[in-house]
Simulated scan of single mutants.
Amino acid sequence: MPHLFRIRSAAAALLAGALLVGAAPTAVAVPTAVPPDGPAQAWLIADIASGNLLASKNPTGQYAPASTIKTLLAMTVLDVLSPQAAVRATEAHTKVECSCVGLVPGQVYTVRQLLDGLLMVSGNDAANLLGDMLGGQRPAVTRMNAKAASLGATSTRANSPSGLDGPGWESTTTPRDLAIIYRAALKYPVINQIFQQREASFPSRTGAKTIKAQNELLERYPGNVSGKTGFTNLAGKTYAAVSQRGGKALVVVLMKGSGDLYGQAIRLFDWGFAQ
């Protein structure tokens, strides 16, 4: 029975062009071992610098991204707002399906604090407030989609700043597009800092509280530099991450998953670096 995933040889990579827009394809050795499959129905692993797709399964299939799309929101915010810009939360920003970082109505937050809550603990309330800072939820989504298109992630359609889904406004993207988005995110120093911090101080009703990163690969996988989980009933489990080793950086994207996606990501990273 043939494998459902694909392995790119050097010739195939050159003929197909770079996976990651803005990277020039380079010749790579043909992988010498079969990549590990796993619970995600769609996935890929690619080299960040060259853009070569090392292995994949349904890399251009359309799936709901859940909270992995929050990284696109973070880039869109930083394109127009300073990390020091401040805004006051209202009760409306807290009226959202959680996960939430715990915004307090009347409290003032900086963009940097909201991005901490967005990327570390996947705060949908933080996404709401950041969306309003971009002019409102629909204008924010329009900006996010324009940003995705400018990166070459042309199959991405965000319909909410947070990645939450609802009837008639489901977000969609592909593993390929998420790889492009997470590669682009590496160019933002603030996003890199947030993804690599284990904990941060966040304003609370009593002064401050400590929030901790949800990305388990920060502790479980040496060389992990970014990772974002997501889950909705429509999306299932999703995960996108970048790890570095020996001067190489690889991106792994997992979509429409269940079970242990961290384990699948670790196996794919180990396989990719071994190539």
Rank of each mutant, 00 (worst) to 15 (best):
R112Y: 15
A127I: 10
G102M: 08
A127H: 07
S99Y: 14
T110I: 10
L130H: 04
E97Q: 14
D116N: 12
V121S: 11
A126L: 09
Y109D: 06
V108Y: 01
V96L: 12
P105K: 09
G106H: 07
D116W: 12
G117I: 03
Y109P: 05
V104R: 04
L119H: 08
L114S: 04
Y109A: 06
N124W: 04
L119I: 09
G102N: 08
Q107D: 06
P105C: 10
Q113G: 02
C98Q: 14
G131Y: 00
V111Y: 03
G102D: 11
A127S: 15
V111N: 01
L119P: 01
S122R: 03
P105H: 06
T110N: 07
V101Y: 01
T110H: 05
G131K: 00
S122G: 13
L130G: 01
V108G: 03
G106W: 08
G131F: 00
G131P: 02
M120H: 05
L115S: 02
V111L: 10
G102R: 05
G123C: 08
L118S: 00
L119F: 12
G102H: 07
V101A: 13
L118H: 00
L119D: 04
C98S: 14
Y109M: 09
D125T: 06
V104I: 15
V108R: 06
N128L: 12
L129E: 03
L115K: 02
R112F: 13
N124I: 06
V121I: 15
C98K: 14
T110E: 08
L103F: 13
A126R: 00
S99D: 14
E97A: 14
M120K: 03
L129T: 06
V111I: 14
D125K: 03
G106N: 09
Y109E: 06
V104C: 10
